[in-house]
Design a protein around this nucleic acid. Structure first.
Lengths: 184, 184
DNA sequence: CCCACTATAGACCGATCGGTCTATAGTGGG
DNA sequence: CCCACTATAGACCGATCGGTCTATAGTGGG
């Protein structure tokens, strides 16, 4: 049995899940503490800025984890990265009955400067990484544009999937985007 | 001077604006009343279901208005509709310093059934309307898929624009989507 | 004329919000 | 050995949450 993660990690973990379910405003400190089994004092010890601090860190952490997961799952081509991404989201949406979305999208819609800032940096990081892959077959400007577009399309499809309670928008995105990222 | 709109219309109007700024959870009944200059009792007279009722109606109303606006601004081709859409959002984001997004996206991320339901219906309505235009040059299945994809891409671009405080994602979407919707 | 409807102002409700603080323990390094 | 750090439980704070209710007016149709 692995040792129990520290209070800080448990807080971040619970916050990511709650962001995905309810967004920033809907995430209460009390529920974060309850779900993570953590004392109130520990939160303000690790995150002196309180909730805003915690949410920003959760956003960054989720962004890093997603990039790592997708890179590990795909074979390094843009097409397989796209499949890894769509497959993961389809599985997650189905598993949690469309109740969990993207924590970075949730952070992007907050009005706190630090939170949207963190979300913006994650989006930029994803775009840069994908642009590197796409740049093998295209000039850099077009690669960057297409990479940012893929991020937009997947985030938007995710939004629609949750509202429609259907994975069709993501599958539609897979088909159209595959036509765009595959070398012509 | 036009007569002051009724309490119901003022409530819906203020709610749409607040949804765009703060999302469903971030929208407080007290602030809706303050901004609309409406009495507390009037809210529960017109919307017996309270906040959930009001938010669902605001979502539907905003969806109808957006469809009307875009239809009025464009010349009826998919390409000009796309331009009307992107132009309007770029202007709005700039005007309000990236502080106002899409109220339907905000509703889509709520966990209340009636709210996400309303958002889903709006998305479906937009998709159907656009699919009609795109179907002139394509078979119906491809037109529907592309229409839903356009909605995803624009909503996702909007999300990124707010996080990055930049209109670049929307301009990227315009370029890529134009290539997809223009008859080949 | 009156009655149903809409509207307004504002008191009030219990619940929850994020944050601060005290008291008490365990623990690991200098 | 002790001291700084991390952790826990829980009381407590003022502010805000969504919702209910009463009292008072205006208004338009039967």
């Amino acid at each position: 049995m692995p040792t129990r993660p520290g209070a800080r990690d448990r807080l971040v973990e619970a916050t990511i899940t709650l962001l995905r379910e309810r967004g920033v405003h809907g995430t209460g400190v009390a529920e974060v503490l309850e779900r993570s089994g953590t004392a109130r004092g520990s939160l303000y010890q690790h995150f002196p800025g309180g909730k805003a601090d915690l949410v920003a860190e959760a956003t960054r952490s989720a962004g890093r984890r997603a990039a790592r997961h997708v890179a590990r799952t795909s074979d390094g081509t843009a097409g397989s990265l796209l499949d890894a991404l769509v497959d993961w989201w389809v599985a997650t949406l189905t598993k949690h009955d469309f109740g969990r979305g993207c924590p970075v999208a949730a952070a992007a819609l907050d009005e706190t400067g630090a939170t949207t800032d963190a979300a913006g940096r994650v989006f930029t990081g994803w775009t840069d990484e994908l642009a590197g892959l796409l740049g093998q077959d295209r000039d850099p400007e077009e690669a960057r544009r297409l990479a940012g577009f893929v991020v937009s399309a997947v985030e938007g499809a995710l939004l629609q999937c949750r509202a429609l309670r259907s994975t069709v928008p993501l599958e539609d995105a897979r088909v159209v985007l595959r036509g765009l990222v595959s070398p012509s």
